[in-house]
């Protein structure tokens, strides 16, 4: 039976079916917690547990799906080019905000982890926690963390930002819609962007662009910021 589950078609079909079902569930219950990646992953893990299949066996097929992460990151460059036109007027303040907010995100997560005595491997896995999952996974490979931990925490970060970001911003007096959009994309990537689109179309566009820019900024700087912060712990 194990040889059967090791066939690539098993992992591929299971992943696509879980994603399809997560969409049906999302239609019925429109809560943040019914995030499609989260629901899909839980469904798949449940199937693997029931049939006593290990991750490696599942990944024989699933790796053909995750292969497409690479090309889809390249596709984000096309998305970035298309949408850039829409923020042209505010480009300077947009870039400054995303740059500072992105760096604050990297430094603060590593600093808190170091202060709370979490092992170095966790800091290496979470430095890129605010950026979109495909980019975060690649950054973690460079910083020598564990990409699977990154993927899980990035999704949780997105859900947090989606659920609480707008409330916190409102309470602290940030009411400008473009500012809210930019903030959600910078701190909570695509899942935050989904919430920004609920606020307004322009907030959503700013959020999507902020997600791309923070992805680039974090990819360029996170390895160096991480090395610098970790050098104090040795």
């Amino acid at each position: 039976m194990k040889a059967f589950f090791a066939l690539p078609i098993f992992g591929v079909t299971l992943t696509l079916m879980a994603y399809f079902l997560s969409g049906k569930l999302k239609e019925k219950f429109d809560f943040v917690i019914f995030n499609r990646v989260l629901v899909s992953a839980i469904l798949i893990i449940a199937v693997l547990f029931i049939f006593n299949i290990d991750f490696e066996t599942y990944n024989n097929g699933a790796k053909y799906i995750s292969f497409f992460l690479g090309p889809s990151v390249v596709a984000l460059g096309v998305f970035l080019y298309e949408k850039l036109e829409e923020v042209k007027r505010d480009l300077k303040i947009f870039l400054i905000s995303v740059f500072v907010g992105g760096i604050v995100g990297i430094i603060s997560v590593v600093l808190f982890l170091v202060l709370l005595n979490a092992p170095e491997i966790i800091s290496r896995s979470l430095a890129a926690k605010s950026v979109t999952t495909p980019i975060a996974i690649e950054i973690t490979k460079i910083t020598e963390g564990i990409p699977e931990i990154t993927a899980g925490i990035v999704i949780i970060t997105g859900i947090l930002g989606n659920a609480f970001g707008p409330v916190v911003l409102h309470k602290l007096g940030v009411k400008n819609k473009k500012a809210v959009g930019t903030a959600l994309g910078t701190g909570a990537h695509g899942i935050g962007t989904a919430r920004a689109f609920e606020i307004s179309a322009s907030a959503g566009t700013y959020s999507g662009l902020a997600m791309c820019f923070n992805g680039i900024i974090t990819a360029l700087l996170a390895p160096y910021i991480l090395a610098w912060l970790l050098s104090f712990t040795q």
């Binding site: 991750f55 790796k63 596709a75 495909p134």
Partner: peptide
């Protein structure tokens, strides 16, 4: 690719 971006990282979520 951008539309189905989330599908491609489901296996990493499972890997957790």
């Amino acid at each position: 690719l951008v539309k189905y971006l989330v599908v491609f990282f489901i296996p990493y979520g499972v890997g957790l």
